[in-house]
């Protein structure tokens, strides 16, 4: 059965506070912080993009996994901010992590859930022995239009999972997965457009909640598990509030989602979000504990996973930087620096 052989993440160290963005647009920071349940977000440096974040996360995952990179048979990078519209991020990552050349690679895009789609692809490929190991990365430097509500949350970060099927090498088994997919235009970005558009409140009920709930319930049906069978749950987290409400709808407690809820501290890392939440949980989980992960990608779909931590986690603990350490290492910037980092203002 496919499992996680190693994991790694990367969060840029620049942060901008809700207060600083609100200051520029004359909005009330307190009500935004409360409404979105977020305090600040990560911002990439000028020399960081979805590819560099993916490489750093993948390198951390490789160190954690302890595998020989030449044995990787597939590299998938999920992002909605691939640096090139045409030219894969995945080949950059494959080369930079020292993977060989007899591998398959592709960039995936499904708003915020392309990385978890990669997990499913690799589960099939490893279970069928098509490849020995695969690596999937969710990485984004997401864009929020200046002045738009998304500007408070759209952040940068990424996470990578090495998937394999040898139980002795795994730190966790992926017991089951289920997906729920519809054509729902809640959020989109047209080719060539710099910023995404969204349906406002339409992104909530028919978008996020419907898909998260359906996918999770499908997983329950498939496995026979109920919320209390999981020690932890991680839901896609476009803000700090939605995952709490999703947890409530499904019957999870706040405690179950606490460790995997990172958005209040670093914002919405899009393709990185649910995978980063999973990594934060894995940093703390012990063998035997179960984790529910349900991602969400606008457009729209959710992938849900039932994961059980195995003995291997103890042996590999401490091989890579902890997510909490990355989150704590930060430097605040002002809005002007933020615009510069996002290439919104350039020297001409």
């Amino acid at each position: 059965m496919a499992g996680i052989v190693g994991y790694g993440a990367y969060v840029p160290r620049m942060r901008i506070k809700v207060e600083e963005i609100a200051r520029v647009w004359n909005e009330d920071a307190e009500s935004i912080k409360k409404g979105l349940s977020i305090t600040e977000k990560s911002v990439p440096s000028m020399d960081e993009d979805a590819a560099t974040i993916a490489v750093e996360a993948a390198r951390n995952a490789l160190s954690h996994s302890g595998i020989n990179p030449k044995e990787i048979g597939a590299v998938y990078v999920g992002s909605e901010s691939h640096p090139y519209a045409v030219k894969p991020t995945a080949t950059i990552v494959a080369q930079a992590i020292g993977a060989g050349t007899s591998l398959t690679a592709a960039d995936l895009e499904f708003a915020c859930k392309a990385g978890t789609a990669g997990i499913q692809m690799l589960m099939g490929m490893t279970d069928s022995s098509m490849i020995k190991y695969g690596i999937t990365i969710g990485s984004d430097t997401s864009q929020g239009r200046p002045g738009d509500a998304l500007e408070y949350t759209a952040s940068a970060g990424g996470a990578a999972l090495v998937i394999g099927k040898e139980k002795s090498e795994c730190i966790a088994e992926i017991l089951a997965t289920a997906s729920y997919t519809t054509d729902t235009p809640d959020f989109w970005r047209r080719e060539g457009a710099n910023f995404p558009s969204h349906g406002g409140r339409f992104t909530g009920e028919p978008g996020y909640f419907k898909h998260i709930v359906h996918a999770s319930k499908l997983l329950f049906e498939k496995t026979g598990f109920k919320p209390s069978d999981f020690t932890y749950a991680v839901f896609h987290q476009p803000n700090g509030k939605f995952p709490k409400n999703a947890a409530k709808l499904l019957g999870f407690t706040e405690k179950q989602i606490e460790i995997g809820l990172l958005t209040p501290l670093i914002g919405n890392t899009y393709s990185g979000a649910s995978m980063l939440g999973l990594c934060a949980v894995l940093d703390n989980a012990v063998p035997g504990e179960r984790i529910l992960v349900t991602s969400f990608g606008s457009g729209a779909g959710s992938d849900s996973f039932a994961i059980e931590v195995t003995e291997g986690i103890n042996e590999k603990r401490g091989r890579a930087v902890k997510i909490s350490t990355m989150i704590k290492d930060k430097q605040y910037i002002d809005y002007a620096q933020y615009l510069k980092n996002r290439n919104s203002i350039t020297k001409r």
């Binding site: 440096s45 993009d49 590819a51 560099t52 750093e56 090139y84």
Partner: peptide, 17 residues
């Protein structure tokens, strides 16, 4: 070491990692 962008060949050119 870290992996970063070094420079880009203008708006449409290559990104040099």
């Amino acid at each position: 070491t870290a992996f970063r962008k070094m420079y880009t060949d203008g708006e449409e050119g290559l990104i040099h990692y």
